[in-house]
Each structure stands twice: as C-alpha cells, then as structure tokens.
C-alpha cells in the first residue's frame, strides 16, 4: 500500500467516520444514556432516509427535508418510548427479552413496509452538493462527505452543549443512573426519558437525511447500520457524545484502511468485528464512565 493511498484512505476515513458519528448519536442517547435496548434505531435511520427521498421527489433539498421530518420523528420517538414504558419498563420484571423482541419487531415491520411501499431498488436524492467534489491538491473530496462532516460536528456540539448546560439535558444524563435523585430535584423520570427518546429519534432523522445524501439506500440497509451504530456507541462508552464522534472517526478510518488494503467485500465485517473485539476486551468502551 503506497503512502498516498494510505493518506487518502485516512482522510476519507475521517470524513466517513464523522458521518458514522452523526448516524449513531441518536442511539448514543437512546441506548447509551437511557438504557433502552433500541434495536430499531437503524431502521428509523433508513426510514428517515426514505422520508427524505419522498420529500426530495417534491424538489425539497435533502438537508431541508431532514429538518422538516425532525418534528414528526421527535413525536414518533416520544410515542414509541411511551409505548415501551407502558408495556415493559413499568411492569419491571422480565422486560429484557420482550423489550428486545419488541424493538426487533418494530425494526422488522419498518423494513418490510419500506420494501412494500418503495420496492427493493436503491433510491437516491439529488442536490447541488451530491455528485460534485472539492479538489484538494491531488485528491478530490466529495461535497456530500464535507456536508456530512459539518452536520455531524454541529450535531455533536449542539447535543453536548444541551446535555451539559440545560436543566433538561442534565436530567437526561442523570435519569438512567439515578431516577430517585431525579425525583428529588423535581423532574419526572418518565417524562424526561420520553423527551430524551424523542430528541434521540429527531437526531436520527437528521442522520437519515445524511444517510441518503452520502449513499443510495435500500430497505435492508438497516442490518449493516445496526452493526455500525452499535459499534460506535459501545466503542465510545455508553452515553458519551464527544466519545461518539471520536469512536465514529475510529471506525471510519479502520474501515477505510481495510477497504483500501483488502477490498470492499471485507468492509461489512469491520464494524461488527470491531464491535465483537470491544465487547470481549473492553465492554465499558474507550471513554466510558
């Protein structure tokens, strides 16, 4: 492998990695902070990508579309959490298996509905920044990746600020660890989690818009992204926002290097292999609490 190729792989890896962080940040909240076994996260991501596609067919810019679907996705998240809470968390006992089966079922339903409505073909969107690229000396960086990087960094910064500076944000960080303490300071744990899950799903909506900006989507794409998103979140250490960004970049770089060295057919295994490694060696993640 030549130095040039290596460098190019590295730079691409950073860009793709930021994108991975952006699509994982919702899960980082839902699973990392709230401790909800949100297996359906990746399907919500693909769902958001298809909604972006749908709005795109009316000539709406994908980034704008991502902002438009933010609100319905927030509502979707809040409803799904409420449902999960009433059906499983509240009953307490044995929520484990059934809670996981619940989200797995939802993920599956979303996937099947998408393939029934949109078919199995790949779908993509059009925008001025998709297809063109920025020349940087020898290498060209696609604008879509630059957009992804900017949005990802913006998203992480905004969420980081929100979680550390606002009352609601701090309550979210506390809720998984100590719901009693939360009650003591006058916040309702269930409402806090519901709000946070809505926020996580809204962030996933933006991630979905990025997903279809970066690459064409198909209904079964969620399977690959289950691995990537959980890999990033576990690697980051549960619930760490800036950790998510760093972990995303790590995954992006490793995946990109493996791609350069061994070919694209090995790429899907990278995230999952890395995930298995982290689970086996350091399950608390790199930046875990």
């Amino acid at each position: 492998m030549s130095i040039d190729l290596l460098l190019e792989g590295l730079i691409f890896g950073v860009f793709v990695g930021c994108f991975y962080a952006a699509v994982s940040i919702g899960l980082s909240i839902a699973f990392g902070l709230l401790d909800v076994p949100h297996i359906a996260h990746a399907s919500f991501l693909v769902l958001a990508a298809y909604m972006t596609f749908l709005l795109g067919s009316y000539g709406i810019d994908p980034l704008l579309a991502g902002l438009i679907i933010l609100i319905p996705f927030f509502a979707l998240g809040a409803v799904v959490y409420r449902f999960y809470y009433e059906a499983f968390e509240k009953r307490g006992t044995d929520a484990g298996v059934r809670g996981i089966a619940f989200f797995f079922g939802i993920a599956f339903i979303v996937q099947v509905i998408l393939s029934l409505v949109f078919g199995l073909d790949q779908r993509s969107v059009a925008a001025s920044y998709i297809g063109s690229s920025l020349g940087l000396g020898e290498m060209r960086i696609p604008w879509r990746l630059i957009v992804a990087l900017l949005v990802a960094v913006g998203l992480v910064l905004a969420l980081n600020l929100y979680l550390s500076r606002t009352f609601q944000g701090r309550a979210m960080r506390a809720v998984a660890q100590d719901p009693w303490a939360l009650k003591a300071i006058g916040a309702n744990p269930v409402m806090t989690k519901q709000w946070a899950f809505g926020l996580a799903t809204a962030a996933t909506a933006i991630g979905g818009a990025l997903l279809i900006i970066v690459s064409p989507v198909e209904p079964s794409l969620d399977r690959v992204y289950i691995g990537r998103t959980f890999c990033v979140v576990v690697l980051a250490g549960l619930g760490s926002m800036s950790g998510t960004l760093i972990a995303g970049i790590m995954l992006g770089v490793i995946e990109s290097l493996v791609l350069t060295a061994f070919g694209a057919s090995w790429a899907p295994a990278v995230a999952f292999g890395l995930l298995l490694l982290v689970l086996g060696l350091r399950p608390q993640g790199l930046f875990g609490r």
Binding site: F31, I100, G227, V234, A269, F272, L275, L276
Partner: peptide, 18 residues
C-alpha cells in the same frame, strides 16, 4: 443481555463476510 443479542448479529455478519 442486550450485548449478547448485538454480538450475535455481529457474528452473523462477520461469518457471512468470510
């Protein structure tokens, strides 16, 4: 338990890739 579930998805993809 959830980590076991995720690991089994991971195992599926890794083996399939091989």
């Amino acid at each position: 338990g959830i980590f076991f579930s995720i690991a089994t998805i991971a195992a599926a993809i890794v083996i399939e890739t091989f």
